[in-house]
Simulated assay, not measured.
Amino acid sequence: MAAAQAPAETRQQELGRQGEDLACRYLEGQGLVVLSRNWTCRDGELDVVAVEGGRLVVCEVKTRSGPVWGRPDEAVDQRKLSRLRRTALRWLAAHGVGWCQVRVDLISVTWPPDGKAHLQHLRGA
């Protein structure tokens, strides 16, 4: 009997993963060190956790294929930012890291199906 196969990634999941891959390459090119990806706890998920100098940088990555669902950055409101901050505190505790500066960044990726990706990095969202 053959093992059950995991369901195929949806187009949106694949686009989101590709956007996160691009964001990580970009961050590493900017000198940041990526520590975690898609870290989850009861408060939520952190797409990318990186370090820049002595500062922890939590990056929310939003990827869109076009304007149908609005600009990627429009999906992050104050409630989402608060959740990201709480989740970052959980990440620090889970990894045994004492207090450190934490910055929340937003990386917006627009990647049309037949075009080149456009990345925007907003520091300190």
Rank of each mutant, 00 (worst) to 15 (best):
E9D: 13
A2Q: 08
A125N: 10
A75M: 10
A117S: 12
M1E: 04
P7R: 14
G98L: 12
H121T: 09
D114V: 02
D114E: 15
D43S: 07
R42I: 11
H118F: 03
C59N: 07
K62I: 08
E52R: 03
Q18P: 01
D77P: 00
V34A: 08
G16L: 08
A50N: 05
A2V: 06
E74W: 03
W69H: 08
T10K: 04
A50Q: 06
R123N: 05
L89N: 11
A117M: 13
V104Q: 12
R17S: 09
T87S: 10
G54R: 12
G44D: 10
Q12P: 00
W111H: 14
G31A: 08
E60D: 11
H118M: 14
L56C: 05
P72G: 07
E14L: 14
Y26H: 15
A3C: 00
D43P: 00
H95M: 02
R64K: 09
Q13T: 11
L122A: 14
G115C: 09
V49S: 01
E45Q: 11
L15N: 02
V51P: 01
W91G: 09
L89W: 03
L106K: 04
E20I: 02
P113Q: 12
L122R: 14
A75N: 06
T63W: 01
A2P: 08
Q18R: 15
Q78C: 02
R37T: 10
S65P: 00
E14Y: 00
L89V: 09
A125T: 12
R86G: 02
Q30S: 05
R64N: 02
C24H: 04
E60P: 00
R37C: 07
W99S: 10
K80F: 03
G16Y: 02
R90S: 13
H95K: 08
I107G: 06
R64V: 12
N38C: 05
P112C: 11
A4C: 07
D77H: 05
C41E: 08
N38G: 09
C24N: 09
A50R: 04
V68T: 10
W39E: 01
Q30N: 05
V57T: 07
G96I: 11
T87I: 10
D77R: 10
S36P: 00
E60R: 02
A6I: 02
E52L: 05
R103S: 14
G115F: 01
G16H: 09
G70W: 03
E45Y: 00
D21M: 08
L119N: 10
H95F: 02
G29D: 06
H95T: 03
A93C: 07
L46I: 12
L119A: 07
L106W: 05
E74H: 02
L81S: 03
K116H: 12
Q5G: 01
G31D: 08
R55W: 01
V57F: 00
L15C: 02
M1A: 04
V68E: 15
S82H: 08
Q18D: 14
A4Q: 12
L27I: 07
R85I: 02
E74D: 12
S108C: 06
V109N: 13
V102W: 01
R37M: 07
S36H: 06
D73W: 05
R64M: 07
Q18A: 15
A117L: 13
H95S: 03
A75H: 06
L106C: 13
W111T: 06
D21V: 04
A93E: 15
G31V: 04
